[in-house]
Simulated scan of single mutants.
Amino acid sequence: MKKKRYALISAMIMVAIALAACSDSKADKNEELMMMDPILVELTLNAETAAVGEKVIIQAKVTQSGEPVEDANLVEFEITREGGGMQAKVPVKHSQGGSYELEKTFKEPGTYRIVSHVTALGQHSMPMKELKVTE
């Protein structure tokens, strides 16, 4: 009876040690992510104003520690027209050198707010630009 009790206690101790080791590695990984340099997202438009039907190039250049981030988890542009109307989130793929681009034409005049949502390396960034579309 005592042998079974000692075996059970030993097994419980080993499980506790194993669980403690797992939680420590998760804590280490979270600390690593927090200690990394932040991602930087430079959102640019090829023009601040455009005419209805004119192509606009929206670009998010993503870097970390000066190096391009070519494997972001998610990059999308949220486009909203001031005063209601058009609102869309458009997923964007990597083109080259940490750049994620979208070529878009606007069918209605107005002021549009463009927010890039970038998730990469455990971080999120949301820079914003405005675009005026004229007739």
Rank of each mutant, 00 (worst) to 15 (best):
L45A: 05
K2G: 05
P127V: 04
L43P: 06
L45W: 07
Y112C: 08
G84P: 05
K93H: 09
D24P: 00
A50M: 09
A20I: 02
A120H: 10
V90I: 15
Q64R: 13
T134P: 03
S116L: 07
M14G: 00
K129D: 04
Y112F: 15
P127N: 04
M86F: 14
F77K: 01
R81L: 11
N30C: 03
A120W: 00
K3G: 03
I39F: 06
G83F: 06
T134I: 15
S23Q: 14
R113P: 00
S125P: 00
A51E: 10
T63L: 01
E78I: 08
A88K: 11
A60S: 12
G85A: 04
G122V: 12
A7R: 10
N73Q: 10
E108S: 14
R113M: 14
E101P: 01
K104F: 03
D37T: 08
A120M: 13
T119M: 13
K29G: 03
I57A: 08
N73R: 02
V92W: 00
S65R: 02
K89G: 09
K2N: 12
I57F: 03
M126K: 13
G110K: 11
S125W: 00
V52E: 15
K55A: 06
T134V: 15
V56Y: 04
G110E: 09
G122A: 12
E103V: 14
E101I: 03
L33K: 09
L131S: 07
M126T: 14
L121Y: 11
S25Q: 15
A7N: 06
K107H: 10
S65E: 08
E108C: 08
V118G: 01
G97I: 05
V90Y: 04
I9N: 06
Y112M: 11
M12Y: 05
T80P: 01
P38V: 09
T80E: 14
E32F: 05
V90F: 11
E48A: 13
R5Q: 11
A7Y: 09
K3F: 05
L45S: 12
V118M: 02
V118H: 00
D28V: 01
I58F: 07
G83L: 08
G110T: 06
G53M: 12
E32S: 02
A60Y: 01
R81G: 02
E67N: 11
Q87G: 02
S95N: 07
L19K: 05
E31M: 14
